[in-house]
Every structure is written in structure tokens, then in C-alpha cells.
Design a protein around this nucleic acid. Structure first.
Lengths: 163, 163
DNA sequence: ACTTCTAAGTTGCGAATCGCCACTTAGATT
DNA sequence: AATCTAAGTGGCGATTCGCAACTTAGAAGT
């Protein structure tokens, strides 16, 4: 259906970032995902909420379904209506989406725009997404190292040897 | 320099995700950022590492500089050489980039590709990026609520009232 | 000084994608 | 049967992508 003459990004680098971008890297994909997290499920809902062109929306929904980020369900009650549901794979994008959004709030818009995402338990805003070590310490760029798989410490023994 | 006749995504929705995508949402932007986190600094380095077309690379670097994600420095020693350096704003994209990469590893490639990102202190792999509550509990989609700013609990008093 | 080399772009141009709008199609409603 | 509605599809101009060749400023070699 969709032609792909330009080189997929996935082939060009050794890590899986290109693969992720292959699925989510196009214009509108993240906004559609956000709308899905907000509970929107139908073509016309996405269309009027986002103001996206219909053909582009159809194309993006198709891609997201291909990549199993959304699932396409025709409702038994009214088989014209298609429900697009987030899959587990789609929901697993939540931290990415929130991290991106929080970055936008902090560095682009400068304000925590509404609606705010809160913990349902106590209605307090969620924490800022950060990089943590295996033991929970917060890490910054300077605490990080790119390492080949064979040099990675995997068990407590090696971890303690490094102390 | 760059013309923009199509509607910026930032205007279309109420949260700052569109603003973030305005800065980082184009093809190659995240891969250039990853290369920068990997220590690449020069035009020709990005070009040969990523295999991106020169005009596109020039355009993307320009955009990233405009958005203050990278800084452009001509080296005094050899003023032909331009060093592109990550700014604090750029470094703040680290959690987003890692979250996206981890998602790709888990759901697209299926393997933790090299190089692996490890904690420099003990060389153990970093934790998976997750959403946390203000008190550190891990939250999933079902623990979350979109809330208007006026309904957000802000201090201990309100937080305890909700218990 | 003058030729050569190099880093970082810029330009031209064909191919692909975006975005607006009108049209279609399958299925429900009156 | 006529109408309505949800979800697309097709046409087409505008924009962007991507390859290759060219340019320009500055450094190096002789």
C-alpha cells in the first residue's frame, strides 16, 4: 500500500532509535498518539480535534496500525464505526510522550499547559521524567557512558568490583 | 531563511507537545541529537556517520541552532571548522531520546543494541525510563488522569485530604 | 604568492510527501 | 427508496527530500 523508496532510517545506525522513528517519526504521529491517550478513538474525532487533513490522517492511522501501536476494531453495533485502540505497544510510548511534552513545557512554552497529567491517586502532578541508574539514582549526561555489551556489568559481583 | 507556510503544529493543540515537535519533530533531528550525545561535533562527522544529504544536514543543524538545542562555534585554531555543541536545552532531551530508544529496543528491534548506555559509576545498564508519581511510585496509564490546573493538588494538605 | 586542499555549506532538479477539497463507498436511519 | 454518516480515496498544487555538483572561506604545501 504505502511505497517506500527512500531509505528507511533503521538501516543507517546501529541502535534502535532509527527503528523507533520509523514507527513514530512522522509528522502528526505523536499528536495522534496523544489524542489516543486522551481517549479519542474514532477517525472523525481525531480529524476534528487535530485539524489534520483526512488523507494524512488515514495514512497515519494505517501506519500506526501496521506498527501495532493502534488496533482497528469495527464496532458490532454500528459497523461503519471503527474504533482505534491503543495496544500495549502503544501504551508503552507513554513515557516517551510525556518526556517530550515535559521538555516542551520547560524549554519551549515555559508553562505547564492544561490539561495537566496527574496521579489519579492524589491528583498531584507526576514527576519529571529522568534517567535513573539501576538502583534509582538520578543520572545526567555526565554520569553516562556508551559501552559495548561485553563490557557491561551484569551482576552484583561485577558491580561491586567497580566500586 | 526557512519558509513556513504550513500551519505550525504548536497552534493546533493546547499542550506543549506540538511545541516540542516543532523543534524536534522532523526527520533526522533525533538522529543528529543522538550523534551529538555520542560526541560528534562537526558537519562532516554527522554527514559521514548518518549518511544524510548535505543540504538536509545543513538545514537541520540550522534549525537545531535556531531552537538553541545546539550551539555553533567556529574554532579559533581553524576557523573553517564549526563545532556544534549541545546546550543545556539539548541535553534536557536525553530522557526523551532514551525513552524512545528503549521503546524501540523493546518493541521494534527486540534487542538491546550496542552501544549500550551504562551508569559510568558501576557500568551497569541504566533503568528503563518510566513515569513516576511525585513520591517516586511507578505509574502506568491507568494511574493517570488529565486534570485542569485548578483541580491539581499542590501541597501536602490537599494531598492528604485526597487519601 | 600561488596552487592545492579541506570544512561547511549552497544550488539545481527530479521524486516523494503534505495538505486542501471534492468525491466515494459501506452501512445505518427515516 | 432517499438520506445521512463514518471512514476513507483521488486529484492536484505546494512543499520538502535527497542526490550530485558547485561554491566559498580559510588553511597548508611548495
Amino acid at each position: 500500500m504505502t511505497e517506500k523508496l527512500r531509505e528507511p532510517l533503521r538501516d543507517l545506525a546501529e541502535c534502535s532509535l532509527p527503528a523507533a522513528l520509523e514507527a513514530m517519526g512522522e509528522r502528526w504521529s505523536f499528536l495522534i498518539l496523544r489524542a489516543a491517550f486522551n481517549g479519542l478513538q474514532h477517525f472523525e474525532e481525531f480529524q476534528s480535534e487535530l485539524g489534520i487533513a483526512r488523507n494524512i490522517l488515514a495514512n497515519r492511522l494505517g501506519r500506526l496500525v501496521e506498527h501495532e501501536i493502534l488496533e482497528r476494531h469495527a464496532l458490532p453495533a454500528d459497523r461503519r464505526k471503527i474504533e482505534y485502540r491503543l495496544t500495549d505497544k502503544g501504551m508503552a510510548l507513554l513515557p516517551t510522550m510525556i518526556a517530550l511534552r515535559q521538555w516542551g513545557e520547560r524549554w519551549e512554552t515555559g508553562m505547564p499547559a492544561s490539561p495537566v497529567l496527574v496521579d489519579a491517586r492524589d491528583r498531584r502532578p507526576i514527576a519529571t521524567i529522568q534517567v535513573h541508574a539501576h538502583d534509582g539514582r538520578v543520572l545526567t549526561k555526565h554520569d553516562l557512558l556508551w559501552s559495548l555489551p561485553e563490557d557491561v556489568a551484569r551482576d552484583e559481583e561485577q558491580a561491586q568490583a567497580a566500586e
